[in-house]
Simulated scan of single mutants.
Amino acid sequence: MLKIYHNPRCRKSREGLAYLQEKGLDFEEVRYLDEIPSQEKLAQVLGYLGMKPMELVRTNEAVWKEKYKGKNLSDSEIIKAMVENPKLIERPIVVNGDKAVVARPAERIKDIL
């Protein structure tokens, strides 16, 4: 089953959700600001994405600039920062089995169907 890591306050995230709904696809919605993924789960999703943790960080968020910018962080420290501050996670992420995409734009979802 498809899973979308979604923030309803984000326009791009809402577009990803709407894409799944318009296609009539069965999916699970995870509001990751409320249901924060564990470090292990986030590391797994990064593997599905084929991305380094830093590539998934929203570096323009104030919390990144205030607490982490300019620091030499390991991948595990970056993952921990995203779990502690889930606003830092780029969205939406759509997972299908062992494949995933950051659905920006929403049409990228078709790449994993």
Rank of each mutant, 00 (worst) to 15 (best):
E22Q: 14
L73I: 01
L46P: 05
S74N: 08
E77H: 04
L17T: 00
I78F: 07
N72V: 07
E55Q: 15
P37H: 07
R58C: 07
M54C: 02
E29Q: 11
N72G: 03
A62E: 15
L46M: 08
I79Y: 04
I4A: 03
Y68M: 08
L56R: 09
S38G: 09
Q39L: 04
E40N: 12
R58V: 01
R58K: 09
G70M: 09
E77I: 03
V57F: 06
G70Y: 10
E28H: 02
L33D: 08
D26C: 01
Y19P: 01
V45N: 07
K23Y: 02
K23W: 01
I78G: 08
L56A: 11
G47D: 13
S76C: 02
Y19T: 01
Y32N: 06
E55F: 00
K23Q: 14
K65V: 06
R31Y: 00
L42I: 03
L25Y: 04
R11T: 15
L56Y: 06
Q39P: 07
L42D: 09
I4T: 00
E77V: 03
N60P: 02
E66L: 10
A43P: 08
I78P: 10
E28V: 02
A62P: 03
S74H: 02
F27A: 02
S76P: 01
E61Y: 10
V30L: 05
L17P: 04
E15A: 15
E28L: 05
L49R: 01
E22A: 13
S76L: 05
K69D: 14
L20V: 00
K23G: 03
S13H: 12
E77K: 10
C10R: 14
E55H: 04
E40T: 11
M54L: 14
W64E: 14
N72D: 15
I36R: 12
Y32K: 05
K67E: 13
E15F: 00
Q44L: 11
P8D: 11
A18S: 13
K67I: 00
K12T: 15
K12N: 14
W64Y: 15
N60I: 01
M54T: 04
V57A: 11
K71M: 05
L17R: 13
L49I: 03
H6E: 12
E35S: 12
K67Q: 14
E35Q: 14
M51E: 11
I79K: 03
G50H: 04
I4S: 03
D26S: 12
D75A: 12
D75E: 15
K69S: 14
G50E: 07
E40C: 06
E22W: 00
P53V: 06
E61T: 12
S38T: 13
P53S: 05
K12V: 08
Y19D: 05
L17E: 14
R58D: 13
E40F: 04
L20W: 02
P8W: 07
E35P: 01
M54H: 13
E22L: 04
K52I: 00
E55W: 00
P37M: 08
E77D: 12
K23T: 00
Y48V: 01
L42G: 08
W64A: 12
K41L: 10
R58W: 06
K52H: 12
L42H: 07
V45H: 04
D34H: 11
H6D: 13
E28Y: 00
Q44N: 09
Q21D: 07
D34T: 03
Y5K: 02
P37G: 06
E55P: 08
D26V: 06
R58N: 11
E40P: 09
E15C: 06
